[in-house]
Design a protein around this nucleic acid. Sequence first.
DNA 1: GCGAGCCACAACCGCACGTTGTGCGAATAG
DNA 2: CTATTCGCACAACGTGCGGTTGTGGCTCGC
Lengths: 311, 311
Amino acid sequence: MRTFIAAADAGQFQEAAADLSVTQQAVSKRIATLERDLGVRLFTRTARGVQLTIDGQAFLPHARGLLRAEERAAASVRPGRRALRVDVISRRVAPAALLRDFHRAHPDTELDVVTLFDADAAFAAVQSGMIDVSFRAVTVPASQLPDGVRTARVLDEPHQLLTGPRHELAAAHAVTLAQLVGHRIWIPGIAPGTEWATYYDDLAAAFGLTIDAIGPNFGTDHLLDVLADSSTLASLIGQQTRFLWPDYYDLRRVPLHDPTPVYPHSLIWHHENPHPVLATFRDHFRSRSTGLERPDAGTWSPKWASRQATP
Amino acid sequence: MRTFIAAADAGQFQEAAADLSVTQQAVSKRIATLERDLGVRLFTRTARGVQLTIDGQAFLPHARGLLRAEERAAASVRPGRRALRVDVISRRVAPAALLRDFHRAHPDTELDVVTLFDADAAFAAVQSGMIDVSFRAVTVPASQLPDGVRTARVLDEPHQLLTGPRHELAAAHAVTLAQLVGHRIWIPGIAPGTEWATYYDDLAAAFGLTIDAIGPNFGTDHLLDVLADSSTLASLIGQQTRFLWPDYYDLRRVPLHDPTPVYPHSLIWHHENPHPVLATFRDHFRSRSTGLERPDAGTWSPKWASRQATP
DNA sequence: GCGAGCCACAACCGCACGTTGTGCGAATAG
DNA sequence: CTATTCGCACAACGTGCGGTTGTGGCTCGC
């Protein structure tokens, strides 16, 4: 690719070869094999050099794009001045949507999204600088956080009931938490000890629900498959969580109220982290999260959630 | 890259090696050299396979992007179902802006923009299917077009005078063509025999202007440099043509009137071209170009331009 | 018509990359 | 606690890819 671009820029193989510190014959060979692999002629050879064919012209910007992509890939792991590295608990839940929102507002900033095993790993990674910011629920009080780590509540995500069409509550316009008592709720794929498991454990304990928050995870497809067929099993899903399922599954989202359980997402960062984008990032979410410290009357969140301040 | 992605997906080198039809040792070596080149560890080795590090997680989407870019690059020259290939007379003038407009309206369609030597080459390329559509001024009547080739006028681009700050006409709010008589107009970088040269020749002949449409082309920078310093030399520039020049050049755009010379851009395509995007493309510009067949009273365009129909 | 400039083909060669063979550590079963 | 399995890393080795040198042919300009 580099050879192709150099030759296209120079208009001749000799000069390109000099730029690349190889012989003209090597450039000729490289272009020949590239043309053979692609199955088209990229240059027309003339007596005074070479000229791009139409195919070559069409190919050139893609070749440049490839080198840019390579550069970005290398930059993503380069220590110092890499893209802002963000940890989210899952790529499907609300924080991922917030990230897309941020990206729309700041299209020039580069983000790398990763997912760590649990909150402890996230705290350690934030403190060490391996990641710059994390979206998590924070279950421990500020006094027990690692040194220099700050948190701020940025989003309360209401939960809804997710059922198949034959479920008893499928047709309800809204359901209270009390109505869920006795129904089996299944939320697989959540590792024990994570803040997700804590949240659902606390929710189940507070209202006497039956929530299987942990258990074998055969993938989202399997969960949806079982829900679609079951008349007794339901699941909980964040209001902004995007699952894609086929229409014929006919799954239903039923709002919860009295109270509505909300999941408290916080921003986690190190206050000495010098990354230039971090301040922009925090400002962006600070402007979108006011009043979260005062619990809404109609909602429920765990006790540990109310100990977190907003930015 | 492929090896890295395969290993990340499989979670172990053995299986990745099987997928790639190489030995486990080869995969191990490839990953090791990739890690050495990048200077970071991408996997943590465990007794039951490997797991991505944070750096590995951040790197993974970039690696996938690199392969997608490679795929797009190869597709750009693959005969059959490649991106719509569009020829423009220059990447700086109005059609390029129209293309960006189309791309905004249809973000999913892929475009490859190329620039052919002259209109004859464009006609031949359109007829042979090497390119799908061309933006050009058409100087020949429809009866003399190659078989199956259709044209449609889509944009009239008004021209302006471009001068340096010390030029006699620099401070004028507007200038008539009659006022330009006797002034030297210099438009380098236009090959003789092209439709551009024809246009400026006709313009000069119609109003008795002095236009050097051809001549040595030392690049845009040189033209701007000369204009900025000269009190006698000016150039013509399309109203929508985007040149970037430093502020201290202090160049002026002076509108022309009585009449305003407009450059007639046409769409050129082959009516049997089966490319799926071509219809969308023509529809897009058809809706944006009404009434061009009736010449505006205050404008001038060459005689051959009025022979072209709108889509 | 001749030299200059540039690309393609041929022959040669070194090293990078894949192979086979082996060792080691961790997890699992008995 | 030991035996076995599983998966990765290191070492030695050979082949082929990709570089080099050498040369010929084509076109353009003086």
